[in-house]
Design a binder for these strands. Structure first.
Length: 425
RNA sequence: GUGGCUGUAGCUCAGUCGGCAGAGCCCCUGGUUGUGGUCCAGGUGGUCGUGGGUUCGAAUCCCAUCAGCCACCCCA
């Protein structure tokens, strides 16, 4: 069959078994996030391009290469959100929440868009579940946020995940480190591949993200950023690490962990899974104490993270999804009908069963043999059979699949008869 | 953006030296005049990704192109 239409590269259909797994995770995540004090936020998928340019930052791959940007009819530049933090900050300010008492804690779950090269666990439209907590600069909150992320993985049974934690300092102490780092890199230009040299001037921290072995080796000989923190950042970082230890959160300190977005400061973290080939970075986050102010609000410290949903699902279950072998949704009662008259009769007769049970009426007109087979595939406990005789008599055949017994029941006693079988399990 | 691998039935794939387009699974029908998992028989289903070229003849060889997967880059 030649397909007339195909989904776009890097996009996906989510259906059948796959969406059941997704919903299973989502339900658990909502539950856990509620227990950690987060309330849901939903924001538009489209925002003015400028919001991301200014918050995520020019010079990052996300805004330079990966945004779905287009022009509206009014000539305004719009962008499909590539991440959520900027939108949450925008919503926080736009809804006048800066004077709310305490810490505002939001969680979100939704699609993000990045025009990246697709591969396993990486899509152009993908889903993130994450949190943003605005209004507290306490290092204990940082630890709680990391703990929250770990709790989300725990809730869906993800194994072998660890948090990597670092501090990238603040505007007070980072410039000195960057200066030294730049000098150091320029003294060792011969080790750095051509394609990475441009980063030295744009954002030298991003050399840490490069997977080049020579560069990694070189940087490991440089002083770790955690040794260059100012007193405030150092104290903050110490408390974060200490609290994580007290909580028993499995983490490792990783001074080479930087983050690709401009707005981070102090605590940054990433949650990684031990796995050979798949995308191992399942979640990332950090503190962004200056973003709210940068967006025109009052100085407001904040921290957040987001989980890559597809990656996490991939990590939970490495069997590739196969729509062909994926069963259709389960039902309690399957109604087999011989013809259209019987379908009509059955639909009316069975209506009240749907108050309590999942009921499928087969309207294909196939052989009863084929319909009974489908009933079984759908895991029905009960099959009802309607044909010419039933239409005439007003009664219906009820078969209990567990016992194989079949009897005739009239319309009035149908509910009770079905209930009897369902509760007999 | 760069490199590697792969495109044949709804799915998974075979197809020899260039010589009639195949198998298994799924689906449908029958065996069982109206009934499930097993079994048996039969059947539906193909623009061989697409477009050119070579050839008497192309799924097969050549060129181009598109798509998928994987890796790099980067990220969730």
């Amino acid at each position: 069959m030649k397909l007339r239409y195909q989904r776009l590269r890097g996009f996906q259909d989510i259906l059948l078994e796959k969406i059941e797994k997704l919903r299973w995770c989502e339900e658990r995540w909502c539950e856990v996030l509620g227990r950690y004090g987060y309330g849901e936020i939903r924001t538009p998928i489209v925002e003015p391009t400028d919001l991301f340019l200014r918050s995520v930052g020019k010079g990052t791959d996300i805004v330079d290469k990966e945004m779905y940007t287009f022009e509206s009819k009014g000539g305004e530049s719009l962008t499909l959100r590539p991440e959520m933090t900027a939108s949450v900050v925008r919503a926080y300010l736009e809804n006048g929440l800066t004077r709310q008492p305490g810490t505002m804690k939001f969680y979100y779950n939704g699609p993000m868009f990045r025009h990246d090269q697709p591969q396993a666990g990486r899509y152009r439209q993908f889903h993130q579940v994450g949190v943003e907590a605005l209004g507290s600069d306490s290092p204990v909150l940082d630890a709680e946020v990391i703990q929250t992320a770990m709790a989300l993985f725990d809730a869906v049974g993800a194994e072998g995940v660890t948090a990597q934690v670092n501090s990238i300092g603040c505007p007070e102490c980072r410039p000195a480190f960057l200066h030294d780092l730049k000098d150091f890199l320029n003294d060792n230009l011969d080790v750095i591949p051509e394609n990475l040299k441009a980063r030295i001037d744009i954002n030298p921290l991003r050399l840490y993200d490069a997977k080049d072995d020579g560069v990694a080796k070189l940087l490991s000989t440089f002083k770790p950023i955690t040794d260059s923190l100012c007193q405030g950042c150092r104290d903050h970082h110490d408390v974060v690490l200490r609290t994580l230890e007290s909580l028993g959160v499995p983490f490792v300190s990783n001074p080479a962990l930087m983050r690709g977005l401009d707005y981070y400061c102090r605590t940054t973290f990433e949650i990684t899974a031990r796995s050979g080939r798949k995308q191992s970075s399942l979640a990332g986050g950090g503190r962004y104490d200056y973003l709210v102010e940068h967006c025109g609000g009052p100085a407001t410290p904040a921290i957040g993270f987001s989980i890559g949903v597809e990656r996490t699902l991939l990590h939970l279950d490495d069997k590739p999804f196969d729509a062909q072998r994926s069963p259709q949704s389960k039902v309690d009662v399957y109604v087999a009908c011989t013809d259209i008259a019987a379908q009509e009769f059955a639909l009316i007769l069975v209506e009240s069963l749907r108050d309590n049970y999942r009921v499928e009426i087969d309207t294909t007109g196939r052989s009863l043999k084929a319909q009974a087979k489908s009933a079984n595939l759908r895991r029905a406990k009960v099959m009802l059979v309607a044909g010419e005789q039933e239409v005439l008599s007003g009664a219906i055949q009820l078969k209990n699949f567990a016992t194989g017994e079949q009897k005739q029941v009239d319309g009035k006693s149908l509910s009770a008869a079905v209930q009897e079988v369902m509760e007999g399990e």
